[in-house]
Design a protein around this nucleic acid. Structure first.
Length: 955
RNA sequence: GGGCGGUUAGCUCAGUUGGUUAGAGCGCCUGCCUUACAAGCAGGAAGUCGGGGGUUCGAGUCCCUCACUGCCCACCA
């Protein structure tokens, strides 16, 4: 009998084993459904794992997100749903390219020297060896995902979807190419989207520069127009100066021209409402190639654009004498030169926000360049409709917590076209070909041999790749096989042979891309993610998902409504994990808590429980190991409860008593004649299960966790286990039937509680559960067994009230013993006055045995207070203990004084309320009744306390 | 500039539609190695619920206002 659990709970000893077992046995795979798809669809519960970067390592935020998802997934799985949780990684264009580039540089080479093809090959190699470490970490932490469906955003299947999506949008006129101001990272040497720019407050300067005014004859009049700028180097590309049309200071300059200092170019003064008269000097230099607002002014006034910087933000040939200088070297030189020429009117300190590259933190340079964009409004319209309540108040996508719905809608309502091209090498290459003959563009599902417009074979493929989020935004459709879904465009979808960027043969783990997957699992049930990628990813998935899936008919051939086009029905936005001091964890601060390290120390289960118990919505999590220590103790507690169980099961076996395993796996139901503690604990179990289910449905992981904690420790261990010890009588004279009944309840309640805890602490519960079944479990894992459902009719209010009453009595005796200084192990006689109203008269008598044990006393019931004793009121009754040692009169007096004050205060408050006519007439009856009852109870307690005080001996 | 959170015990956090004397864990104090568990058991101390005002019979909870704090969006050079 393998019931010999080691004495101390050692998570490391069990966790590796089960983690490996779950993966090896492929326990959480969800095969493509066959047969009744309607049924499968009705039962499905699915989550798409937000793909971590392939370069990533697991941090606390991941672990938190995975814990929440895993709890929900395990919960639904145990409730009998057809559960699917799909893992994968993101190719992470910039991040991965940066990482491999750094490697190459450390070897003394550059990617440019290598060439594109060799570089991409190198990235694939890197990925093979080091990529996806984070998934291995997830395996160790027991995330119950379907590993057979693991995806990678650059794999063939997903690349097919990317290409189809691009081509389709292009055909629909929703992708265009053009020269616009974009955020440019000079280090990454690529365009980045607005979202990828992070702003930092920066103490800079506002330089005031004097531009000489020209007369009509083209000569300087001696007058100057002074402009203000924070980026003087961009003046090299100035094509005008703008002033407000109604600015009276400058009315006389309307229509005049200026000399652009340093470049000595003549530029016009233009009138534009955009200019603020209050800021700076009221005159703005206009540099359309380096500022989005200036670009807009340039458009309005038909001004040329002069791009003065190259891809590395070095001044180019349009920068005259400054060509070849870095932007900041140029700035310095320009200021010096202006000063030398007397054109620098002033310098002011100026705090402003400076944009940095989200990836490498380099200061972003707005720069004119030719890029590909998605015309986003039509997609955004659908994405708004998907989240807003419809005419019936229904929402196709429900966002929790609700406050984020507003944030989402506001962002979506003010959305700008999405720059999707990146000047990188690692990513999905844009399927567009430029014709050298007619200069037109051919966009195609299959690589073209000739220009679609003039037939020329002088075509070359676009070198840009797509924004990483373009492919991850398609995941909800692409993981289920879109566009290669039977009956949908299969003939038109690109074949893998023609894919660019993706590598043929680098297959995902096998997944049959049949329609059945799409029909069953799309839309997915839920997305669990952080606020930080609400716009990056969540919004894009909604836009792209709604857009592309709406063309896929429903399984029965009917058109797909919006509610079925959405990529997921619910979004749960979790909190952020911070360090114990509420600081954001970051590598530079060095306060990153490595979950794997913590897990090694305390066990995965304890860390999971910590995260779950702190996961209340709305507030960030300050991760504190002190709490984890507490939950490791909780795990240890359960471990030891299990040891206690096994010890007794084994002892019972020795005298031929066995627990019938068939009673396990269900919710215990009490027999009406069972002892009180049985009726009580079974009732508590049902109440706990009901509460946990209810909390999980509302994403209240904290509530669910504390409910289980309270049940397991507070009810099961502290009371039930202590009571049941007395029922487990293995002696010759024992009533074997009663012992067996007690043992059966003990084991079945414990087993059910294990299942309740399992989603939170999968390792510990798996270990104990297997031991409980003695190597013959009904399933391969507790995770595949049944989750306890609480049955309201099994909740026994009377048993609960009786138990609470007896706990009061036991507590009262313990309290009194302490106050009287009774030695811990000395048994004393305790008298209990009567029995409270509404309780069975033989209640104490029937439960006396365990009450005496738990209070180290012998209990006598009496109907008369013996005034020679020192009585104490506890809850609804009075208690006295017989102990000859001297009472510490002053301590007793102090305690009573405190009590009396408390009662007086409470009584006064209650009396005031009850004397209030408004209260009596307006408050609901049960509140008034409750208060009256409380008032009379308090009055009794007060009187008793005063009496006891009077009876105290002097001194 | 606009918006959204947070402020409850020494610490970290709960607290349903307003309703009886505001809870938990950790920490702290006291006593116990009681054969499941010292990662434990039993008992205890500790909060004018950020300040002010209002609504109400009744406010931690609703409204106004102020303070502190965190985040998001915008990006007037």
């Amino acid at each position: 009998m393998p019931h010999d659990l080691p004495k101390a709970y050692d998570p490391t000893a069990i966790e590796d084993h089960w983690a490996e077992y779950w993966v090896r046995e492929n326990l959480f795979a969800q095969p493509t459904p066959t047969g009744d798809l309607d049924k499968a669809r009705a039962q499905q519960f699915s989550i798409l794992l937000p793909p971590p970067n392939v370069t990533g390592n697991l941090h606390m935020g991941h672990m938190f997100e995975h814990t929440e998802s895993d709890i929900l997934i395990r919960w639904h799985r145990m409730r009998g749903n057809r559960v699917l949780w799909i893992p994968g990684t993101d190719h992470a264009g910039i991040a991965t390219q940066m990482l491999v580039e750094r490697q190459i540089v450390s070897e003394g080479a550059t990617r440019q020297q290598m060439g594109r093809e060799a570089f991409v090959e190198r990235v694939w190699k890197w990925r093979e060896h080091y990529g996806g470490n984070i998934l291995n970490q997830m395996k160790r932490l027991g995330a119950s995902v379907d590993w057979s469906r693991e995806y990678f955003t650059m794999n063939e299947r997903l690349s097919v979807a990317v290409r189809e999506a691009f081509v389709k949008l292009y055909e629909q006129g929703l992708i265009y190419r053009g020269a616009y101001i974009v955020n440019w990272c000079p280090r990454c040497q690529t365009a980045i989207s607005d979202l990828e720019v992070v702003y930092d407050e920066h103490k800079g300067h506002l330089w005031e520069i004097r531009y000489p005014v020209h007369g009509d004859d083209g000569r300087e009049t001696g007058e100057f127009l002074t402009i203000a700028t924070t980026r003087p180097e961009t003046m090299l590309g100035d094509v005008a100066v703008a002033i407000h049309p109604e600015d009276e200071r400058y009315t006389h300059l309307h229509g005049k021209k200026l000399r652009l200092p340093l470049m000595n170019r003549e530029i016009p003064i233009v009138l534009d409402d955009y200019v603020s008269r209050e800021f700076g000097t009221g005159a703005v230099k206009v540099t359309p190639a380096h500022d989005p607002n200036d670009f807009a002014i340039g458009e309005r006034h038909h001004l040329p654009s002069i791009n003065v910087m190259d891809a590395t933000a070095t001044i180019n040939e349009h920068g005259g004498p400054y060509a070849g200088l870095d932007r900041y070297a140029a700035r310095k030189r320009i200021i010096e030169d202006l000063e030398a020429q007397g054109l620098l009117a002033g310098v002011k300190d100026h705090v402003h926000n400076v944009g940095h590259c989200d990836r490498c933190k380099t200061i972003v340079e707005p720069r004119l360049s030719t890029q590909w964009f998605v015309k986003i409004q039509p997609l955004a319209d659908k994405a708004i409709a998907a989240v807003k309540p419809d005419a019936d108040g229904k929402k196709a996508i429900r966002i929790t917590p609700e406050q984020y719905e507003k944030v989402y809608l506001e962002w979506m309502g003010n959305i700008h076209d999405w720059c999707i091209s990146r000047q990188l090498w690692w990513g999905h290459r844009i399927p567009a070909w430029h014709c050298a003959t007619c200069h037109k563009i051919t966009v195609a599902r299959q690589d073209p041999a000739a220009c679609a417009h003039c037939g020329s074979d002088q075509i070359t493929q676009e070198t840009d790749v797509l924004d990483t989020w373009f492919s991850s935004g398609l995941l909800p459709v692409s993981v289920f096989g879109w566009p290669n879904i039977a009956g949908h465009q299969s003939s038109r979808a690109p074949s893998s042979r023609f894919l660019s960027g993706a590598r043929v043969g680098d297959q995902d783990a096998v997944t049959p891309s049949a329609r059945a997957d799409f029909d069953t699992f799309y839309p997915t049930s839920l997305l669990v993610t952080g606020f930080d990628i609400l716009f990056f990813w969540v919004a894009r998935m909604i836009m792209l998902g709604c857009w592309f899936s709406s063309d896929v008919p429903m399984a029965d051939g009917s058109p797909r409504p919006l509610a079925e086009s959405v990529p997921f029905r619910e979004v749960y936005i979790h909190a952020l994990v911070r360090d114990a001091n509420r600081e954001k964890m970051s590598k530079t601060k060095g306060n990153v808590v490595d979950p794997i390290e913590i897990v090694k120390q305390y066990g995965t289960d304890a860390v999971r429980f910590t995260l779950a118990s702190m996961a209340s919505p709305g507030t960030d999590i300050a991760f504190n190991v002190a709490r984890t220590e507490g939950y490791r103790a909780f795990a240890n507690k359960i471990w030891n409860a299990a040891r206690f169980l096994f010890m007794n099961v084994d002892r019972a076996a020795e005298i031929g008593i066995a627990v019938d395993p068939s009673v396990l796996g269900a919710m215990p139901i009490e027999a009406p004649d069972a002892p009180l503690e049985v009726r009580w604990i079974v009732s508590e179990l049902h109440a706990t299960a009901a509460k946990v289910n209810q909390s999980l449905a509302a994403y209240r992981f904290d509530e669910a966790a504390s409910t289980i904690y309270q049940f397991f420790w507070g009810s099961f261990c502290d009371w039930y286990l202590e009571i049941v010890k007395l029922r487990l009588d293995f002696s010759e004279t024992a009533d074997k039937f009663a012992t067996q009944a007690a043992l059966t309840t003990l084991v079945s309640v414990f087993e059910a509680a294990l299942r309740l805890l399992s989603p939170f602490m999968p390792f510990l519960t798996e270990e104990i559960w297997h031991a409980l079944y003695d190597g013959n479990p009904p399933k391969k894992s507790i995770a595949l067994w049944k989750f306890p459902e609480g049955n309201p009719s099994a909740m026994n209010g009377a048993a609960r009230m009786q138990m609470i009453y007896l706990q009061f009595v036991v507590g009262g005796i313990r309290e009194t013993r302490k106050d009287r200084g009774v030695p811990e192990r000395l048994t004393v006689e305790a008298q209990v006055l009567g029995v409270a109203n509404n309780q069975p008269t033989n209640l104490i008598e029937e439960n006396k045995k365990w009450m005496e044990k738990l209070s180290s006393s012998t209990i006598t019931e009496t109907t008369q207070r013996d005034d020679r004793l020192n009585w104490r009121s506890v809850g609804p009754t009075d208690i006295a203990i017989i102990y000859e040692a001297r009472i510490d009169v002053s301590a007793e007096r102090e305690r009573l004084t405190r009590d009396i004050a408390k009662y007086e205060k409470g009584l006064a408050a209650a009396e005031r309320q009850l004397g209030n006519q408004g209260f009596l007439s307006k408050a609901p009856a049960h509140v008034v009744e409750g208060l009256k009852k409380q008032e009379s109870e308090t009055r009794t307690l007060l009187e008793k306390a005063r009496e006891t005080m009077r009876a105290l001996p002097a001194g």
